[in-house]
């Protein structure tokens, strides 16, 4: 890419230079009346500016083809690769780790420096999986056209992920986070994810949560697969991918974000599929209780 940019800058400079020279040198001067020589063309010049671009194109094409084939290699079954099956939904991301039997949403936890091999799939419309600072993007297609690709993170940290294919009103809000952690932390996280579900301590609230939330969401080993998995949501980087939590620039406390979200999901993320908890008959107190419970549902890793 550096090669491409430098060639292109040189091309630009040459064209700009000739343009500037021509415009200054050959402007029509006052009182100029004669007719300039009518040049039909110049075979040599024309050959030059056909052949040189052709050579430049070849210079660019060779590394391009090499990279295309390198990118196209399938690393999904590499021994040391961490497999992740990505399923995109309007407007959230589901991450399944088949080797570990773990499913999560929104925050993709990966061990640093290890190859992460993805299989991308969509549950509804087309989306595109993109972590700008780690790698290029790949579309998530339906069955029959699933894509595979891989990347690895060189250092620990949190990276922003995005959806890059128009997928509906909240396309711009369909973000996710990639959290690159040490291998030890990753193993701890997997163990924590597999621990039995923690439910609200208040039995009545737990009942409401199970009935109203777990019909679609899941925590630990309980609940359904339709909506984002909530296991350990308290330690995630954001709520609903765009309400950033404390620790990030402009972030707010988790509980506050959860309350904003539960209060009116449509106002946060227009067009999303979550029914408003109030419409489901939840009282403000119950919503507050659930927000409190979720905010404190943290995983230790």
């Amino acid at each position: 890419m550096k090669l491409a940019i430098s060639i292109m800058v040189v091309v630009l400079l040459i064209v700009f230079a000739i343009t500037a020279y021509v415009l200054v040198k050959f402007r029509r001067r006052a009182g100029q009346s004669g007719v300039p020589e009518q040049v039909e063309g110049n075979f040599k010049l024309e050959i030059i500016w056909t052949v040189i671009p052709l050579i430049l194109v070849i210079v660019l094409a060779v590394p391009t083809v090499q990279q295309v084939f390198a990118f196209g290699d399938d690393h999904f079954n590499d021994k040391d690769a961490v497999q992740v099956k990505v399923t995109s939904h309007q407007y959230w991301w589901e991450f399944e780790y088949p080797q570990y039997g773990v499913k999560t949403a929104q925050d993709l936890i990966i061990p640093v420096k290890k190859k992460i091999a993805f299989e991308l799939k969509t549950a509804d419309v087309l989306h595109s999986f993109w972590v700008p600072s780690l790698s290029g993007k790949m579309d998530t297609n339906p069955d029959g056209t699933l894509n595979k690709f891989s990347f690895s993170a060189d250092k620990e940290g949190v990276f922003r992920g995005k959806c890059a294919e128009l997928c509906g009103p909240s396309h711009g809000f369909m973000e996710f986070k990639v959290k690159s952690v040490s291998e030890a932390s990753f193993d701890k996280w997997v163990t924590a994810m597999k621990a039995p579900a923690v439910l609200p301590e208040d039995a009545a609230l737990a009942e409401v949560f199970k009935k109203q939330c777990l019909s679609c969401h899941a925590v630990g080993d309980q609940g359904g697969p339709v909506a984002p998995n909530l296991t350990g949501i308290g330690s995630r980087e954001s709520v609903a991918s765009i309400l950033l939590n404390e620790g990030q620039e402009g972030g707010k406390p988790v509980k506050e974000n959860l309350k904003t979200w539960l209060d009116d999901p449509q106002a946060v993320k227009p067009g999303n599929k979550m029914p408003s908890p109030k419409d489901l008959g939840l009282t403000d107190e119950q919503i507050d209780g659930i927000a409190d419970y979720l905010a404190n549902y943290k995983l230790n890793y």
Binding site: V15, I18, T19, V22, L23, F26, R27, R28, R29, Q32, P36, E37, V39, G41, N42, L45, E46, W49, T50, P53, L54, L56, V57, L60, A61, T64, V65, V68
Partner: peptide, 29 residues
Amino acid sequence: SISTMLIAVPTGIKIFNWLFTMWGGQVRF
């Protein structure tokens, strides 16, 4: 990728032809 890059060649021809049309002419703005 390659077929797309090739389009740069005829386009380049055009650009230089325009520039050299003005070369030696009496350009009015």
